[in-house]
Write a protein that binds this DNA or RNA. Sequence first.
DNA 1: ACAAAAGTGTTTCGCCTACACCCATGC
DNA 2: GCATGGGTGTAGGCGAAACACTTTTGT
Lengths: 234, 234
Amino acid sequence: MEKSTTEHRAAHEALGVVLQVREEQLQALLWRRAREPFLAAWSLPGGRLAPDETLEDSIRRHLAAKVDVRELSHLEQIETLSAPARYPGERLVATAYLGLIPAGIAPQVPADTAWHPVDGLPELAFDHFAVVLAGRERLRAKLSYTNIGFALAPPAFTIAELRRLYRAALGHDVSATNLQRVLLRRRLLEPIGELRPPGRAGGRPAAVYRFRTRNLEVTDQFAVLRPPTGGSLK
Amino acid sequence: MEKSTTEHRAAHEALGVVLQVREEQLQALLWRRAREPFLAAWSLPGGRLAPDETLEDSIRRHLAAKVDVRELSHLEQIETLSAPARYPGERLVATAYLGLIPAGIAPQVPADTAWHPVDGLPELAFDHFAVVLAGRERLRAKLSYTNIGFALAPPAFTIAELRRLYRAALGHDVSATNLQRVLLRRRLLEPIGELRPPGRAGGRPAAVYRFRTRNLEVTDQFAVLRPPTGGSLK
DNA sequence: ACAAAAGTGTTTCGCCTACACCCATGC
DNA sequence: GCATGGGTGTAGGCGAAACACTTTTGT
């Protein structure tokens, strides 16, 4: 049963699922491949792991060629893909990361790189389609029980603007009334004390809010099976 | 900025955080190292990735030397560790898996392998301590919003028995009344129609239950920000 | 005055908790 | 009978959803 494996060395790449809400849609940053295999197919940005860097360092370094890394408001590992045949002709293990960019900034991207709505992606190279969907699922889940919205939102925003971001990311409508109440009750948002003047059509000026912190925090830790009010076991 | 990385090949290992509730405590399966570095230190079982296997295949293969793999009721990837200096003298990337074994079975383990309570672990080799804690956190979180309890429980059990498993895994007391109601309301449990006769001290016979499915299902999908009763967007 | 947009008040609902009480058994 | 352990009835709390209504602006 035991194989002689001590000599096997797999090449390792980092892949980035970089998401941003653009034009009311959740979009992913894709790169048009310049090499075989899958020449000219759309694929996730990324590249090989170098000897002296972590995987997170690596994805940051490779993404730097596509977007200004300072614009990444959040980065987390999704999963590691290791099917032996996932990359033709070579053993290549891939670790995928989820990267988020706040709405409202328009990163410069090179000519071989473009944003694509996650609903309605083109054919993607390798197993990248499933990776994008896994990234979107991670984002959607965390929108419900963490403050990860900070990573989709600009530094300051109105509830109506935030609502459009949540709607695009979640894929379903969100009530502005309830969104405001949930995020305020959980103390994720705070008003900065300014008002946004209404547009041409008039209307009451909107209060401007910001996220209280721009680091990931779990805000709904134990939905059920909460510890009893008081004691933990040992 | 771009490094010449095309030739770098990192060795890759799979690590298993195998947990079981034993004697009312959540315990992890550890292996006493027989080689340098960290000779004789306790560490997670696992081993090198072979050329023609996935990482999941790999951890199953390596664990087979420690426990009967058929006893693994659940296996999922936790995270991939890639700090360049995490393993002395060699670049070694590690992908950690969480494996669960139902309570009540006593797997044969080799002499160099033993169960240790997760509260009160000895010093572990490398970065393995943090990996065990990450595995426990994953388990605790999923106990709240999935049916992962099936993987800790034997095929049939009373509510009182299940309560002890949840208590050990969560680290805090759990009310049998509420545990029963939550798990029945979510339709995770169903009675098998049998009764467990009481012990020497008497008492009403307990109904015997089982998990409706023994595959992972998310049961509390969107805590908040649920889609409106009706429509999804696009 | 009217339309538009933002925000608040209020009701309803459902899930969860806590605790009292009832049930079935051994001694 | 009484002790012991299992299960159910029920009331209260709380967060969330829904919707009506008020507030503040532009035209």
